[in-house]
Write a protein that binds this DNA or RNA. Structure first.
Length: 759
DNA sequence: GCCCCTCGAGTTCT
DNA sequence: CTCGAGGGGC
């Protein structure tokens, strides 16, 4: 008896899943919503009568459990890369040219020969051949084997879905690409995402399948939702993407279930067995398994075809039931993708063409010049508020006077603005027809608007160089002409420097209160001293009250407890939190102190390299300029060149620098390399060893494994050389693996690495 | 001297 | 997110 109920239930579940699939994947439902709801109600009744038969993957169990407290962050098994953008045909073609050069078999053959023989006679013919090939390719639109795969870039939120043995076990947002938020409970409530993959004869379901794709809200659903918000007198969402992101951040998955989010799969993460050879194969399998993919994707044999598809699609966009902000172009063949590899942020085998951003017109009311932590004066436009790409904008940076002059921006002008990458507002140009007749170019401040201090002006380096080298160029030409017995060719004298070449205007008063304030905000900020309870607002208050002028003051605030308590909205509790935050900030270690000091050109990377090499502030101060500029890290260039070295050296040996460091020392701030608590326990299994990591690892992110290497006393280098002791290779390892093999560097997989450090 | 890559710095709004 | 510039490879 129970068995037949069980069968009945299973049958109902399958039916419902099939209808979900038809609705969301095929976009072709075959029953009405009412009938669907009836089926669901029937299933629910049966399950209520037989609760022992309920399984977590039943369609009734999409919303289960209480609202959650917050989202855990989790590491992605494979990094979720973002996609590089272009906005015009030329850069799209450039990308195709680069791709072609890496991938074309004929070119590869020429290269191979080049490696085998060193005969210079051959070199020229090889170069000619190569050039001919490239010219031909350019004409043909860089055709590549397997072709380009093009599909619309849906404007939504990137999500990774992890299926184990066909069951959805984890859904995560992209986050920074390495770790994201666990939104499984919410995604389970989205009917467009199958809880169970559908079996398919041709494609056995892999034991682990990570699918990347886009969660999005169809335009109609967005409008319905906003209408409901407006009716309830609540704030509507600015755009469908915000609505999607907002929905995924709901702590109560019942709300998620009510909003009809959609999903479209377009990429892969971890995948057991790697059973596919092309992207289009993979997508076909996804569809077979019941996941939606974009039906409007196209295969193209050349970049010219790609461009035609892109242009053709622009008009189609408006007709689609969802937002599309561009087109994604991929190399279809996986082996070619592998050969192309990745930069630190993007796959090289993929690029997004973005359609022109939404623009808006508004009026420039005023420009104020803000003082940054480096003393740079930045003109900031104040405009009449205007709604663009989802938010109301009233400010935009004008960067520098050069920008203002080149675009000839004047007060009272009507300006066209858009958002770079849909985020940061920019003034594109002025509508000259609407310029008030009496307008004049604006005057830059002649003194610092905050302290009245003196100003120094910097100009575009290329232009400076052009002007400075003009005389030498003329001389060279004269000499050459004399030698060849001809009249020297006239070389045009470059125009002198003008406002339009100005790249920066700096307040050079070291005591400028605005600068001090900005530097203190930076010093206390995340990534530097990270002083809890000392945000921008509090720094302003403390500085205005005269309690804070130097970095050292931060650490003596304890002694001014009474005065601190005087501040507005500063109670005992908040003050105690602040003091605790200050104490905790003392042992962030040398690297973060260096970043916090705000020395020109010394950011997180340079600071870490310096801290690791020199070990302590004393060693750094004792080092000569040459020492700083030329040291190597395990035989590799340090990335610190003369400019950075000069900047650092100047700071450390200035009166101010010396004073700051003494203050920090006296305050008990840790000024040597931080040794995390783990180090002691971890031991030094890798002491003196240089390791290089390549490919994608399963267990660790790049940062994590590099931190581990350092924790165990090793050095994490970025490229393979003779001095490399081990290469840790993950999936999709590229040229570094080849090089390591060539040089006979021992290659470790992840498990072997774990063993080495004794995990 | 010309690329390519990475880093630093400045930036808006919710 | 994007620009500009430093660093380094060829």
């Amino acid at each position: 008896m129970a068995k037949s109920v069980n069968e009945q239930i299973e049958h109902l579940r399958d039916t419902i899943r099939e209808h979900d699939r038809r609705y969301y994947v095929d976009a072709a439902p075959i029953i009405s919503d009412q009938d669907y709801d009836k089926l669901l109600a029937e299933l629910r009744d049966l399950e209520n009568a037989h609760p022992e038969l309920i399984t977590p993957d039943s369609p009734t169990q999409r919303v289960a459990g209480e609202p959650i407290e917050g989202f855990k962050t989790i590491a992605h098994a494979r990094q979720m890369y973002s996609i590089d953008n272009t906005y015009d045909v030329e850069s799209l073609r450039k990308w195709a040219a680069r791709t072609f050069e890496t991938v074309d078999p004929k070119l590869a053959k020429i290269e191979e020969k080049a490696e085998d023989t060193d005969a210079p006679a051959d070199a020229k013919s090889r170069r000619d051949k190569r050039e001919k090939l490239l010219a031909k390719a350019d004409e043909d639109g860089y055709p590549i084997d397997g072709g380009y795969f093009v599909d619309p870039k849906v404007d939504g939120v990137a999500i990774s879905l992890r299926y184990e043995r066909g069951k959805l076990v984890l859904a995560a947002t992209r986050g920074d690409g390495v770790r994201g938020d666990d939104v499984t409970q919410n995604i389970r409530a989205v009917r467009a995402v199958p809880l169970v993959l559908r079996e398919h004869k041709k494609y056995p379901i892999p034991s682990v399948l990570e699918v990347r794709g886009e969660m999005y809200m169809p335009t109609a659903e967005f409008e319905r939702l906003n209408a409901a918000f407006l009716a309830a007198d609540e704030e509507p969402f600015a755009n469908p993407r915000n609505a999607t992101a907002g929905t995924l951040k709901q702590l109560d998955s019942r709300i998620v279930a009510e909003r009809r989010l959609q999903f479209m799969a377009h990429g892969r993460g971890e995948l057991t067995g790697d059973p596919f050879t092309t992207h289009s194969d993979f997508l076909e399998a996804l569809t077979a398994w019941g996941l939606a993919t974009n039906p409007r994707s196209k295969m193209c044999d050349s970049i010219d075809t790609v461009w035609r598809v892109i242009q053709g699609f622009e008009a189609e966009r408006a007709k689609l039931p969802y937002g599309v902000d561009g087109m994604v172009v991929r190399v279809d063949r996986y082996d070619l993708q592998e050969r192309l590899g990745y930069t630190s942020r993007f796959p090289r085998w993929c690029i997004a063409y973005k359609y022109a951003a939404e623009q808006a017109t508004t009026k420039l009311l005023a420009v104020d010049w803000q003082v940054g932590k480096t003393g740079k004066l930045t003109p900031r436009a104040n405009m009449e508020p205007v709604f663009v790409a989802g938010t109301t904008v009233q400010h935009a940076t004008l960067h520098n006077l050069g920008e203002v002059r080149r675009k000839d921006i004047r007060l009272g002008d009507t300006v066209i603005i858009e958002k770079a990458g849909e985020i940061i507002p920019q003034v594109v140009r002025v509508v000259l027809e609407q310029r008030p007749p009496d307008s004049k170019p604006m005057k830059p401040p002649a003194r610092c608007p905050e302290c009245g201090g003196e100003i120094e002006i910097e100009y575009d380096q290329r232009r400076e160089h052009e002007i400075a080298s003009h005389a030498a160029k003329v001389d060279r030409e004269k000499a050459r002409a004399a030698k060849e017995g001809r009249k020297p060719e006239p070389i045009a004298k470059p125009a002198p420097l003008s406002d339009a070449d100005e790249s920066g205007r700096y307040c050079i008063n070291p005591e400028c209160p605005a600068q001090l304030r900005e530097r203190l905000i930076h010093f206390a900020g995340r990534g530097q001293m990270d002083v809890d309870g000392m945000g921008e607002k509090v720094v302003h208050q403390l500085a205005d009250a005269g309690l804070l002028t130097t970095f050292g003051d931060v650490f003596s605030l304890h002694d001014k407890r009474e005065a601190v308590l005087e501040l507005e909205r500063m109670g005992e509790k908040k003050a105690d939190n602040l003091f605790a935050g200050i104490d905790a900030a003392k042992d962030r270690g040398l690297a973060r102190v260096l970043v916090g000091l705000g020395i020109h050109h010394v950011g997180s990377t340079a600071a870490r390299v310096l801290a690791e090499h020199f070990g302590s502030i004393d060693a750094l101060m004792a080092a000569s300029f040459e020492n700083v500029a030329a040291f190597k890290v395990r035989g590799q260039p340090s990335g610190i060149g003369p400019e950075i070295a000069k900047s650092l050296h100047t700071f450390l040996h200035s009166a101010e620098g010396k004073r700051v460091i003494t203050e920090l020392k006296d305050a008990g701030v840790k000024l040597d390399v931080e040794k995390s608590a783990a180090t002691g326990a971890a031991g030094f299994a890798l002491a003196g060893k240089t390791l290089v990591v390549t490919g994608t690892l399963e267990k660790y992110s790049r940062d994590e494994i590099e931190a581990l290497i350092r924790e165990h006393g090793g050095h994490a280098a970025s490229s393979v050389s003779k001095s490399t002791d081990y290469l840790v290779a993950g999936e999709k390892a590229g040229s570094k693996l080849d090089k390591a093999k060539k040089l006979g560097v021992p290659i470790l997989n992840e498990a072997e690495f774990d063993k080495l450090i004794g995990v």
